[in-house]
Design a protein around this nucleic acid. Structure first.
Lengths: 312, 312
DNA sequence: ATTTACTATAGATTTTATAAATAGTTTTTA
DNA sequence: TAAAAACTATTTATAAAATCTATAGTAAAT
């Protein structure tokens, strides 16, 4: 049994296809066939049921592949140990970001990061929180940026910043003339909410949920949903709440519709999250420090005192 | 990086000597030299400091070897998964037993066990609890039988039985004429205690400790210390306490000196303990069931109601 | 029935692991 | 301090393996 064989088995289990898995492993298909056969012979069990199309794992195969994932992960940590020793920050780093954070945060930190850590090959993907959790667990993502807390097993969180919500209030809305908004002013009946807007806590959560299905259908299909939210609001569907960073690049005409909350402002917690194994921790640390620095700058321009809904 | 290379590194780290490690790995010394060099070249770090005699691990080498232990352990679990799937109970199984359990328990279950599970190659070693914990952690033991609870991290316990203590009271002792003994009758001043006799709990623990150093010097050096204890008792050094199973094969002359405790009798908890990774769990299960069965038989002949000091 | 989409097998080639012999080190001993 | 002992590293040869190319085999889809 070799680590290579286990990697091959993982690739086949993932793609359910020898040929595709071979490509991903940068070897030919017969190589996989023979290596998997050797592994099966050595263990004297059948791992893959080639009878079914697409290929399926046998019962014991599933257990073996699960364990193979552990072994390969642990093996990769050796390189991690070496990198840490050398103070080397580099290699491939796959980062997931949720849609409502992606467009505002990415332009802010990306240049900085690749300048500071040119040896890191960043692969960034826009994914939903749900997809992110799956991919961190199966090893397809090294880390992600998402709204927290998630309280997911196996996943650790490290807070990057708290992003206040800002009310967007169109013409003719009953709250239009208020200078600052109170949480108590909010009426769920005339408010458009983003899926991520579930962070109010103190009792608003349940109200949000009544809107959630509707929101999923209308906005969740594309990443630019916050733009859509603003347009719907402009067309009289109600007020809405925007994450603070999104309000920074609104056109002047639209930004006149913004109303900040009275302090303490409700906010969402944004964290970098990663597997508990803490693989590639140096890069995660690096990214944390870069983003924290950038955000400190962005917040400095604002007049918003950020208070987390989680802090007492 | 291969699993083989990691195993070689582990062997060298353990024996601090390429030549000895090579023997243990059943390869020649140049094989180890070249494989370790390949590993070091691939990772581009020095793992072993050959300058020192005996060989030492470098700082990063220590971390790598620690991680290698993980990887190799996880890799061995693949075979474990396969065995479990096949219902196969076999392979090498290294069991540690503490001195005061070894001579009585081993003859009782060994024949039974090897008859029922002939494919298991048992390697049994008599070790102190301390040595056992070290060896379970470093992977040199698969399991052990010891007095519990130990509350050691990384180690799980599964109770096999509760073994009552029986008082051994020589001629002319003040308790000689009592039919049954109470815990309250015990006077630490005239009692010889075995190191393992620290299981009284309810306040006796501290008293035992006053004797511990003395006991270490006199009896702990050899496994037959209980015999010595009886002899010392016979020579007027005081009464003593014996684990129940030891009293079963005392000569008739000596067994007349035994006095059972009034129920509930103080007892020691004896468990099979193993690493939390639960490697070779099928064999551990098998051993547990064999020993439990045997003990149920042995206890049936006794008139001793067994009540644990831990049960309320 | 034929094509398509795979996986398995065979034979050749390259790479790798290992052994045997030996050279090079350091430490111990006389 | 010279010789021996106790090691590890290097060299060369060999056996084993991993991999490739080409092709055969097999099941599903058309």
């Amino acid at each position: 049994m070799t680590i290579t064989q286990l990697k091959y088995a993982l690739a086949i289990a993932e793609h359910k296809n020898f040929t595709k898995a071979a490509e991903k492993c940068f070897v030919t298909q017969p190589t996989l066939s023979t290596q998997i056969q050797k592994l099966e012979d050595e263990l004297d069990v059948v791992i893959f049921d080639r009878g079914k199309k697409p290929i399926e794992l046998t019962e014991v195969g599933r257990k073996i592949v699960f364990q193979a994932r552990n072994i390969v992960n642990e093996a990769e940590r050796i390189q991690d140990i070496v990198d840490q020793q050398k103070g080397f920050i580099g290699g491939e780093f796959r980062l997931g970001i949720i849609p409502t954070i992606m467009p505002t945060l990415l332009p802010m930190f990306l240049k900085n990061f690749i300048k500071k850590y040119p040896k890191v090959k960043l692969k960034i993907e826009e994914l939903t929180t749900e997809e992110i959790l799956i991919r961190i667990n199966d090893g397809h993502l090294d880390a992600a940026i998402a709204a927290t807390p998630l309280e997911s097993d196996n996943i650790k969180e490290r807070v990057l910043y708290y992003e206040p919500f800002v009310a967007y209030i169109p013409d003719n809305h009953r709250l239009r003339d208020k200078k600052t908004i109170e949480v108590a002013d909010l009426d769920i009946e005339d408010m458009l909410l983003l899926e991520d807007g579930h962070c109010f806590r103190e009792g608003v959560i349940n109200l949000c949920k009544t809107f959630k299905d509707q929101i999923d259908e209308h906005f969740q299909l594309e990443s630019g949903s916050i733009e859509t939210l603003i347009k719907l609001s402009n067309e009289g569907m109600g007020m809405t709440l925007l994450p603070y960073l999104h309000t920074l690049d609104l056109k002047e005409k639209l930004s006149s519709n913004l109303r900040h909350f009275a302090k303490p402002s409700p906010a969402r917690e944004v964290s970098i999250i990663y597997h508990k194994s803490e693989l590639k921790m140096q890069i995660i640390d690096a990214m944390h420090s870069v983003i924290s620095g950038i955000i400190r700058g962005a917040i400095a321009f604002s007049d918003v005192e950020i208070i987390s809904p989680l802090s007492k």
